[in-house]
Design a protein around this nucleic acid. Structure first.
Length: 209
DNA sequence: CGTTCGATGCACT
DNA sequence: GTGCATCGAACGT
């Protein structure tokens, strides 16, 4: 069953924790892709220096100020679309970044989309557990783009479902790839899961700062 | 094992 | 003009 709108209208850290083990589903004419969320990060309010809302309301971060339960998708490094779930009541700009999935459905479609990336030209197929490993890889594999910005997650073609999935032990750690706000351990992941990002050494160093 | 860096586009100052 | 909530290859030790 699809998670209701109210699921997202709660403290962001609770939402981040509870999103682990849930199923992200994207239905398109070319096929359906789905995966279990195994890694996420919380970005909480204007006081969080790493949150896009830290600079106050702008055109780009407007979705954060809107109602919870919608997607906030933005382009990062000119290359990667990042997908967040907007949380908390409207006016408190917060969201959860979806960082990694364990692929469940549409793996062939995911692999085709990943292979389409220019930098993968001439390289071998992506392993199953790497298809949705990392926020940029995840959106590419799932076919999530800027066109999905502001989409409702509780109905429509991009949805998050609950039900029956055991998440395993959760591990909290500093968020990845940011220069500020690293004192907060607002990244949550299934401990030891193969599809969790941050596997390379430079990431690990930043994590331990 | 470790660190560095290019690709690539746009919001923000 | 600057700086990214990244990815993955290249290179040093």
């Amino acid at each position: 069953m699809i998670l209701p709108r109210d699921f997202y209208d709660r403290p962001t850290l609770d939402v981040a924790r509870d999103l682990i083990g849930k199923l992200l589903v994207h239905r398109l004419p070319e096929g359906t892709a789905a995966g279990i969320i195994v890694e996420a990060e919380a970005y909480i309010g204007e006081e969080d220096p790493a949150c896009h809302a830290a600079v106050g309301p702008t055109e780009r971060n407007a979705p954060l100020y809107g109602p919870p339960g919608r997607a906030y998708v933005y382009l990062n490094y000119g290359l990667h679309d990042m997908m967040n779930a907007v949380t908390e009541c409207a006016g408190h700009p917060s969201a959860v970044l979806i960082r990694a999935l364990e692929p469940v459905e549409g793996l062939a479609l995911m692999r085709r989309r990943r292979a389409r990336a220019p930098w993968r030209k001439g390289r071998g197929p992506v392993a199953d557990h790497d298809l949705c490993r990392g926020p940029g890889n995840l959106t590419r594999a799932m076919g999530i783009t800027l066109a999905d910005n502001l989409r409702t997650l509780w109905r429509g073609q991009l949805t998050i479902h609950g039900g029956g999935v055991s998440a395993g032990d959760l591990a909290w750690s500093p968020r990845i790839g940011i220069r500020v706000g690293t004192e907060h351990h607002w990244r949550v992941a299934v401990a030891g899961h193969r599809s969790v990002s941050g596997g390379n050494s430079s990431r690990r160093k930043r994590e331990n700062d």
